[in-house]
């Protein structure tokens, strides 16, 4: 078994009606780098060149080894395309563990909501998280709308040294998540 295969076997695979959430792969990098090179990435540390994008993607993979969890790649069941990432994320310097999401492409179809909900459920059930935040940079109104759909409340503000002013959005606690999941199931 190759290293990438063994890594993939260690990372869970989640399914939703339209999506598969799976381990990041080298073949996802071009889509990731294209997103990060675009103006759409201005709320997630971009735009950045391919060299920096590679290092960022390396960290996306390595985070799984460092923390035992990380962000999944969101794959469209119908086309097999990689659409973005979502999952539990806690790099050095974060105020607390968060549920992160980024859509590289495929906006406007509820993909991010479907994916982030599955990722949050996994963090609560498999990792035992009882609470979670999402950090959303000020001005990222689409992501804020998604946070509201997920039941989050803007709890406080923070200014990140590198990324600037952001809101800390608090997710519904693990034990209150049931109602949202019914709508989803």
């Amino acid at each position: 078994m190759s290293l990438s295969q063994s890594f993939e076997a260690l990372v869970p695979r989640l399914e939703t009606p339209r999506l598969v959430l799976r381990a990041p792969r080298a073949t996802d990098f071009d889509a990731y780098a294209a997103y990060l090179a675009s103006e759409r990435a201005r709320f997630t540390g971009g735009p950045m060149d391919r060299n920096l994008a590679w290092r960022a993607f390396g960290h996306v993979v390595g985070h799984w080894v460092l923390r035992g969890y990380g962000v999944f790649v969101i794959e469209d069941k119908a086309t097999g395309e990689a659409l973005g990432t979502t999952g539990p994320f806690f790099p050095e310097g974060w105020p607390e563990p968060e549920i992160a999401w980024t859509l590289w492409q495929g906006e406007g179809r509820g993909i991010a909501t479907e994916a982030a909900l599955a990722a949050r459920t996994w963090a609560y059930e498999a990792l035992g998280w009882t609470s979670a935040i999402s950090l959303i940079l000020d001005g990222n109104t689409r992501s804020e709308a998604l946070a509201i759909r997920l039941g989050c409340i803007r709890e406080s503000s923070v200014t990140h040294a590198q990324f600037g002013p952001a809101g800390i959005w608090r997710h519904p606690a693990a034990d209150t998540q049931g109602a949202g999941m019914e709508a989803y199931a």
Binding site: S4, R55, G62
Partner: peptide, 21 residues
């Protein structure tokens, strides 16, 4: 350099294995 960049850098050191073999 700061600790956050160091973390991401070390993540890349690990991830490089998966991405390149």
């Amino acid at each position: 350099m700061d600790d956050e960049k160091a973390w991401r850098g070390f993540g890349h050191v690990i991830g490089h294995w998966v991405l390149r073999g």
